[in-house]
Design a binder for these strands. Structure first.
Lengths: 234, 234
DNA sequence: TCGCATTTGTACGTATGTATC
DNA sequence: GGATACATACGTACAAATGCG
């Protein structure tokens, strides 16, 4: 997070969050922001672009950049994929149900674009928000890419560990959202009844160089989870 | 669609779709694209940016812009909110179940940010893809914004009508995805059983000036629908 | 209705940084 | 280490939409 436009974006996001622009409901003009941050117009525009893509603002030509007040509380913003911890903060608790090293069979190897027999960490976790069961995650991490995971690490935010400790750059995430029927096991863990609906997110996460490091299936508590997609017309 | 970077983006998207880059799995370099389209580097980069946001490509610094081959077939790409028709083409059929003019009560007025008593078109439609029931849509259109809708128009693509006929500019869309339990009525229309899961999308669509023109609740057939979210780390 | 000031959008140009191969 | 290719950042000019008088 050292480049100018990201720093500026983060600062503006913070200001929006703090309600600095509640009166005008608009950001300062580009001209004013150039003055404030002492950077070029392009840099300001890149920062605003980022804010726009995160769904925080919407620029209207000739008028200004308006703050978009959406009720994100308790929802997962699909534009901000940082794992649960960074969205819900310290209200998240994690119970590790299973943690083991396996070898990729043909199907898993195909899914994770690796060789058959590649060592893979398999982790099953139950994650709760404010003590309410929120999601069961079945995760597969390629050990060739993430060489070391411990029970302690997987009890917290694995993404944070990869980014901050391993200094690996997460590049992009493919996510597929479907609904299904709760299995007996998942229902028990989530405190629901088998046969009830499940909100399912199936994910592939890639490093910047295009290597898949994480494949996971998240079985969400349908009574608690809302996915949010704030999109701009392109 | 008259600006250069959009024209170039569309052309490249077409080329990708036609499999022009199947061999290299990469786009030509920025330098080559500048030569091909005879525009500046910034313009090429804006076009690639758009492709990236639509999830078609992923640029890797120092290496190239790679084609992202994701199985979009039969899935709804959350990045391309154009309504069903433009994603599935002529395989979409629409049955209008209800079409009437109502007045906004307090709750609806609050949701649609309009006055109580505002005339609202209410439309219930069953939409099928290749003759399989796909989604039931309950839509509310503000008549002050969309003055005229007919049974004929709502049998097709309402969004296309608003954009191409009314020449209104769609600005942005908020979407909330949840799972729930199928009601008896919805289950019957979708050819499913009451109590089975429903994949639900609740949407608010805004014009560029910030006015809500459409509020809708889409009850999806959970056996058919997959939502796709291709995101880049920001 | 027209015109003007404001504000964002598009487009071009240039230099330098940084990751990959 | 050098060549290649994308990323960041600066600057400039003009277009287009909005809003006000």
């Amino acid at each position: 997070m050292e480049v100018k436009y990201k720093i500026i974006c983060d600062d503006m996001a913070q200001n929006i969050h703090n309600g600095m622009y509640l009166g005008s409901k608009k950001l300062p003009t580009e001209e004013e922001l150039i003055e404030k941050y002492q950077v070029s117009r392009n840099t300001i525009r890149k920062a605003i672009d980022l804010l726009t893509r995160k769904g925080l603002v919407i620029p209207i030509q000739g008028s200004g950049v308006f703050i978009r007040n959406v009720a994100c509380n308790g929802a997962i913003n699909l534009e901000d994929f940082n794992g649960l911890t960074e969205g819900f903060g310290n209200k998240v608790t994690t119970k590790v149900i299973s943690f083991k090293l396996i070898e990729a069979d043909e199907k898993l190897a195909h899914t994770m674009q690796c060789e058959v027999g590649t060592p893979i960490y398999f982790i099953e976790r139950l994650r709760s928000v404010s003590n309410t069961p929120y999601v069961i995650e079945y995760s597969y991490y390629n050990k060739d890419v993430i060489p070391y995971l411990s029970e302690e690490i997987v009890s917290g935010s694995i993404y944070k560990y990869i980014r901050d400790e391993l200094k690996k750059q997460i590049g992009f995430v493919d996510r597929e959202i479907t609904a299904g029927i709760l299995s007996e096991h998942d229902a028990r863990e989530l405190g629901l009844t088998p046969g009830e609906p499940a909100l399912i997110s199936t994910n592939r996460a890639y490093l910047k160089n295009g290597v898949i490091f994480d494949y996971s299936i998240d079985i969400h508590n349908y009574k608690e989870t809302r996915f949010l997609k704030l999109s701009n017309y392109m």
